[in-house]
Design a protein around this nucleic acid. Structure first.
Lengths: 389, 389
DNA sequence: ACAGTTTCCCGTAAATGC
DNA sequence: TGCATTTACGGGAAACTG
């Protein structure tokens, strides 16, 4: 039943950007007797706002090449744009664009053995954005909706969004790392995130508000929790994939915990963590024990994408030097926490070439809205959207 | 007569990119008696290829606000795109896209005191590109054409392009630096460029072929002379403007000359030059005199835009360190050639913030094709195009 | 003035054409 | 197959709009 996902944002289906192509697939599950007529499917966009499909919305169903002889249509190029004009500025304008849920409908009408048959199905709720800068917010909505809203489609969900428990949310967050790399988050990492959202003593059954998750800024910071976390996902995807996949980035550790962990270790032990003050930043901290046994901790300014564009992260670790009190500069980074010799961990990943593409393969393809299966029961099966078990 | 230039590429008018807006202005030089009718101007694109104007090509002339009461029209939004279809693939397909010259025509018809009056004028030749990567080639064509082709418009010019003398060409090259910064090139810099194109002994009256200038690769290099030079113009514009404007970049020096100049100078004297092997790269070389008086020369790998995006160039000079034979690393750069103490030269330009925008203001605006003056004599006056004196 | 949203368009990379 | 050209679209920043 699953199709290969073919999205520019494979991690983020159900978000459509105006002016960018997306793809849908509709399949007829019921086997019909051989017929001499064609079944045309029409795609329409909901009328809540002034969006329209700029390509031909009609297409004829065809027998699938590769499978069991089902009828199906692939709509590609179903490109979209905003229309100018005095459309109904619906009163739900309290909601931001990324909280507005939309949907695509697919209809087919045909006659078989004298019977008029009308089929109709529609997509899961979609979010329409006009710039990639809105992607994090849009994806937050899709995740939250699918986590908390069951059966009946509710396009007005964000007028009164429900709360999530930490048990639910933490699972989604970890899953986000799975879809962006080869692994999710461990207990310690999730605990740090939970503390960030809920404060020091929290339990799995504590509730989190939608606005606290994605809309309100973290106290003292100019960005929301999800904006911050998503910036890290992007940093991993674009610049840190091999290092993250090897599990070398502890990432989510509070500064207190970081010190407690490093204090016990040999001088020159370091760990990698994501910046909490800058969006999409990674830093390292190392411990140094003085002659008196006193531990000192040092960190670097977070590296963000602009610096990582020019420098390969493992090379940064290899080449990092400090110049202390006029002596020969040396690299203070010796052991990746807990005690892996630096070159043993990163040796494979070193690279003298100036960064560039490393492992991130950016295949261009259509945004896959998922598939819609026309049948008498609508049965929409998106590829990557998280549904709680 | 001159209008403020309002171009995204203020340095490169007469190049139009499909899908990007451009602007034209047409002015009627003849003062007409007050009339109760309107003069409509129609803009049309030549038919040599499948381009078309996607906005309304008709507009009514109006009295100019700010000046002497001339009638004029500003066409903005005269956007363009390629049409699909089996258009006349004219046989001049030997020419590359950036050598295809096009033109815009402006027509007006009206009746005055019983007389039918037809006015028509057209633009200087234009080059149409579909991607900014074609901009250097396109601009080379515009420069070359305007340098060498006088009066009669000749859209087929590049079927048999004429040659330029070094006297002519060097002036244009220097002028390119003027329009990108505050100054042109001096004699020494031009001599280096001349040698690059013409070999060691050349004179002002030596001729250069169009293909040698812009089409053929420099022997042993994977790019043409103009591609190389334009990459340097871009590097200056985006990353080096203050340093270049202060005249701190010698830039165009052969390696031999570089050594000859530095050899005479104190240890730690350095100069800045553009890479001849990499597109858009700048490097520095410094001299070091041993105890035996022997001079050694060292250079860094060229810095290109990706590195300069993350690092501010003056800061690179300030912070550059070499670690030699296990002693304390130090900055070998002491005096900017001939003998300006480094901090005296660059002190003003240091900047602890991670680069970012420094002085380059990227105002968005329309590509200005220039103005076209409707009159009984066509009198097209572009803003920035070089015409020999 | 300002924040949310859209538009603009460069620049890289993929796709397409030839 | 390779090269020339176009298309796609992410991303930063300007423009728009209430």
């Amino acid at each position: 039943e699953k199709q290969p996902c073919m999205s520019t944002h494979p991690q983020k289906p159900l978000v459509i950007k105006t002016g960018v192509q997306f793809a849908t697939k509709v399949r007829l599950l019921v086997q019909l007797p051989a017929v001499d007529y064609q079944i045309k499917v029409r795609t329409t966009f909901d009328k809540t706002r002034q969006f329209f499909i700029v390509t031909n919305p009609m297409k004829v169903m065809d027998i699938e090449d590769y499978s069991n002889g089902c009828l199906s249509v692939d709509f590609r190029h179903g490109l979209k744009e905003k229309k100018s004009g005095n459309a109904t500025k619906s009163n739900e304008s309290l909601l931001s664009v990324t909280e507005e849920l939309h949907s695509l409908s697919f209809e087919a009408h045909f006659t078989m053995q004298g019977l008029n048959i009308d089929l109709e199905t529609c997509s899961l709720p979609l979010v329409v954005i006009s710039n990639v800068s809105q992607m994090p917010g849009a994806w937050a909505s899709i995740m939250w909706y699918n986590l908390l809203n069951q059966q009946p489609q509710n396009l007005a969900y964000f007028s009164s969004p429900t709360r999530a428990t930490w048990a639910q949310l933490s699972e989604v967050l970890s899953w986000q790392f799975c879809t962006n790399s080869v692994q999710g988050l461990n207990k310690d990492q999730l605990d740090m995130l939970g503390e960030k959202l809920l404060g020091q003593h929290f339990s799995n059954s504590d509730h989190i508000h939608w606005s606290k998750f994605s809309k309100e800024n973290i106290p003292g910071k100019p960005f929301s929790f999800w904006t911050w976390l998503d910036s890290i996902l992007e940093l991993i995807r674009k610049h840190l994939l091999p290092v993250w996949n090897e599990n070398y980035i502890m990432g989510f550790v509070s500064k207190d915990m970081e010190r407690a962990l490093l204090r016990e270790k040999k001088s020159g032990t370091f760990l990698l963590r994501f910046s909490e003050s800058h969006l999409g930043g990674i830093t390292f901290t190392w411990v140094q024990h003085g002659d008196d046994g006193e531990a000192t901790f040092n960190s670097v300014e977070p590296y963000t994408k602009s610096r990582l564009n020019a420098l390969h992260f493992p090379d940064i670790i290899r080449d990092y030097k400090v110049i202390s009190d006029g002596v020969v500069p040396k690299n203070p980074l010796k052991f990746l926490y807990p005690d892996i010799p630096k070159d043993e961990a990163f040796g494979q990943l070193y690279n003298n070439l100036p960064s560039k593409g490393t492992t991130f393969s950016s295949k261009r393809c259509l945004t896959d809205v998922g598939q819609s299966l026309i049948s008498f029961v609508s049965n929409f099966q998106p590829t990557h959207t998280y549904r709680p078990p």
